[in-house]
Design a protein around this nucleic acid. Structure first.
Length: 264
DNA sequence: TACAATGTTTTAAG
DNA sequence: CCTTAAAACATTGT
């Protein structure tokens, strides 16, 4: 479920716990979200520590605690962050919870494709330092974009936009939105794109990310009604631009939504 | 029942 | 070594 803007929204849900001490750590060590994570070190490192800050980068989140403790969170397909009362008892899918004096910070993830990482040390973990440039940063340049789609010139452009090593935060609905706004068919390989199409995709990638952060990322409000986003999951969905019936097919291994009249 | 779900990793093949 | 495609992961809802 969560892409760039949804992740940013969920990250902020834990802001009310900033400057608060963790009294107790609740976790189920055998759950898949803790795969290859030392849960004993995690519990020990967070118990009694104060939450000092957090940051999102694409679909990843980093939370910083006093005493040089850090956790990385990924929400996978069904993960969510929320806040409950301090006396809250974790329910079935609440695999990770931090109890504080005034509230409990909860990570739930029914499908467990999400992830919890732990790092102990004075500096940021290496898995945070090595991330690619954010899409809404000056380092995300057209030449970087062009070089990347050239490398992946034979795969469907939809599949290329889903690669986190260049488009951190872009997920299934955002990739469809970018291509719909660019009037480009999701199945087209980059080798068949002309320079105008390529430029439109680059610019709309930045635009869709920025707008999503201003709406969904801010308070989970809807992006503009003229976007594909509002229409794609409706029964008998129609293109908000030309009113033609929208197509749904598997492209790049994911269900894709596109307008066969607008996108070629 | 069977399949799909806003994601990533592993495996295999070219 | 690189790119691409498909299966696997765990659970719920239609």
């Amino acid at each position: 479920m969560p892409e760039l803007a949804e992740v940013e929204y969920y990250r902020k849900q834990w802001d009310c716990g900033l400057q608060n001490k963790v009294q107790q750590v609740h976790l189920h060590p055998t759950k898949r979200i803790f795969r290859r994570t030392d849960t004993s070190a995690l519990s020990a490192g967070l118990s009694g520590a104060t939450l000092l800050g957090s940051e999102a980068h694409g679909k990843q989140m980093l939370f910083r605690f006093s005493g040089g403790a850090w956790i990385g969170l990924h929400l996978g397909m069904s993960g969510k962050l929320r806040v409950e009362s301090s006396g809250f008892e974790p329910a079935k899918h609440d695999h990770f919870a931090l109890r504080q004096a005034r509230q409990t910070l909860v990570f739930s993830d029914p499908r467990q494709f999400g992830r919890v990482l732990f790092h102990s040390g004075k500096d940021e973990p290496s898995w945070w330092r090595d991330l690619p440039p954010r899409i809404n940063s000056t380092e995300f340049t057209y030449s970087l974009f062009k070089e990347f789609i050239r490398r992946h010139r034979k795969a469907p452009i939809k599949a290329v936009l889903l690669l986190q090593e260049r488009f951190p935060g872009v997920g299934n609905w955002m990739a469809d939105e970018i291509l719909w706004q660019s009037n480009v068919h999701p199945g087209k390989p980059p080798s068949t794109l002309n320079s105008a199409e390529s430029k439109r995709i680059f610019e709309n990638t930045i635009f869709v990310c920025a707008e999503a952060l201003k709406t969904i990322g801010k308070d989970f409000s809807d992006p503009p009604p003229a976007w594909l986003f509002q229409h794609r999951w409706r029964k008998g969905a129609a293109c908000p631009r030309c009113e033609a019936k929208l197509s749904h097919t598997t492209i790049g291994g994911r269900t894709s939504c596109w307008c066969k009249k607008c996108q070629r």
